[in-house]
Nucleic acid binder design. Sequence first.
DNA 1: TATGAATGAGTGTTCATTCAT
DNA 2: CATGAATGAACACTCATTCAT
Lengths: 191, 191, 191, 191
Amino acid sequence: MKEDKRERIRQASIKVISKKGFYNTRADQIAEEAGVAVGTIYNYFSNKEEILEYIFEVELKKRLAFLEELENKEGHVLDKIHLFLQKHFNEIIKDPKVGEILVKEKQFPHRNNLNAILGYLKLIPEKLTLLLENGAKKGQIRKCNYKLIGSSLFGAIQGVVEVAIQNNELAILNEAADELTDLFFNGLKIK
Amino acid sequence: MKEDKRERIRQASIKVISKKGFYNTRADQIAEEAGVAVGTIYNYFSNKEEILEYIFEVELKKRLAFLEELENKEGHVLDKIHLFLQKHFNEIIKDPKVGEILVKEKQFPHRNNLNAILGYLKLIPEKLTLLLENGAKKGQIRKCNYKLIGSSLFGAIQGVVEVAIQNNELAILNEAADELTDLFFNGLKIK
Amino acid sequence: MKEDKRERIRQASIKVISKKGFYNTRADQIAEEAGVAVGTIYNYFSNKEEILEYIFEVELKKRLAFLEELENKEGHVLDKIHLFLQKHFNEIIKDPKVGEILVKEKQFPHRNNLNAILGYLKLIPEKLTLLLENGAKKGQIRKCNYKLIGSSLFGAIQGVVEVAIQNNELAILNEAADELTDLFFNGLKIK
Amino acid sequence: MKEDKRERIRQASIKVISKKGFYNTRADQIAEEAGVAVGTIYNYFSNKEEILEYIFEVELKKRLAFLEELENKEGHVLDKIHLFLQKHFNEIIKDPKVGEILVKEKQFPHRNNLNAILGYLKLIPEKLTLLLENGAKKGQIRKCNYKLIGSSLFGAIQGVVEVAIQNNELAILNEAADELTDLFFNGLKIK
DNA sequence: TATGAATGAGTGTTCATTCAT
DNA sequence: CATGAATGAACACTCATTCAT
């Protein structure tokens, strides 16, 4: 019941924020879209930023859970990365509105210095870094600066999504997983 | 004289914005830092956003000019990319405050839909894409989805800078140019 | 309830504006006088000018309604004008603050070119002109340039009120209806 | 020389203010129109309001001088008023821009309570009142409330001009002097 | 006397958040 | 738990005026 209302507000927020941007979205616009009163929003979120954080949280938890699953599985690191890319790009193709928010609002400046979004967001390249490190340990890829390459991979993913959304070419994402894996496969194979 | 004042305001803005974020920077804080009156700012910029745009403009023009130089030179595309990465990372090491702004404020939501910053920003991956395409034509690298790889490269660059700045580890940037070139070198070499 | 608050703001505005002039009246002064927060004003009026327009609207609608009543009644045109003058001057004697605003703020320059006040204000001389025209048709007064005489009458009314208010001699208004009717009666009688 | 520059600024001000209204006229727009620097304006006028006051002063002095001339002449009061009306309406037809300013800016709210314009403006109905009073003494017109009728006349004049300018029908002013004199002639003749 | 860059006080309006109902 | 009217702090920007040159 409680989660129901929270979810309704999240969905409404995604709709409005993806269209107007978080900065230009007013609390009452979210309320109207969600079919509740403004006050109700504040029964489920303590402030506007928290809604945005929640949107990121939901998406990022999905990715992190998937990455953790992958960590515990056997298999080649680059296959795992390939699976992750497929998963991520598919989610975005499925719900481009959320994708747009992930791309555009990631750096939204929080009033307090605790930026929950960046907190979550850091976990992804960290997981990727770990994946690479373990892959190298198992001799699946060459040694490298894992953190640096992990961050690059994470950045590359975002670069692709950014371009796809900016130019309204979601189709590009369909081949993106293959191309990127290919790039990193050759780039990281044992010499 | 006129450019002097404009430059002073730019410098002051970089200092304040990198510390507090553009959104949380007040016009009078910039004025104070620049040692001028608020009104003076508006003799040189027509609004606050224009200051941010100018900061990006200055930086991006440097990069674009460098990329154009590279385009017209002989040499292997990956050497060119290597040079560009060195140039970019060095600039950031030299002036991390600007780097911070480039990373954090890139997506700042503009009131009018004409986002001058994104306009400039799109040119970089476009140039990279062009570089890759020409390199492929000359047989220096394999064929690939140039736009996708160009965007990935651009994203990778940003991912690295983001992590470096977030974790306050500028040192990582010193090897970043080499590592990234290496990654793409293998990733894109003729099979 | 909603109209209550709007009315409270109107009353407060009359008080403050008549004292300091619209131009020198700050939104927070109105709010304070009305016993509400500044923001509340903007829940009932979309901007400061709209408050002034509303003050004129209320007053002018009273006059226009009265003039329309008169139009539909039988009787001599100059008796009708006499009644209108009495009505108008009485209203001003009853509430001189509003009178002061009507006189002083009538020409307030609006930012957009649509000056709602002038729109309303033009209707009064138009009605007077119509009254004169009909009176002439019925042979109650001589033929004349109705528009010109209508405007003169409207101007004369304002001239009288202006002087009465400027010199703080509201008493003059008591005889004004009679004197003016007398003037126009002789001035317009059939030769 | 000094008067030359002052006059140039007055002329420029008339041009700009009649177009945009005093409230919307910026000091630098006047300067540009006059072909001088902003600072120069302040060598000839101590502030912006003083320019407007000066415009009124010049016009009103012309009228007052004319009225004083008339006072000292022999003749019927209504002939004198006729002459005055002709003079006034002719001036407005000759230079409608000034007429527009006289009508629109008369009530401009001054920051200090000393409104020089209203000070001047009051003198006109006072002179008219005096004229009427003297006429009555000489038995040229009936007794009446001179102040009230003087103010009415002054108001009537303004009403006519206002309508003429609002509707862009300066032609109406050509017959206005005759019509108005006629009205007052009959309205004030000895019974 | 002319200039025009610099000044900074001044204010309408917004909108996230609250809380009495 | 839902409501939505009330709140009031916050801020970009303007523009008349100044004064060093």
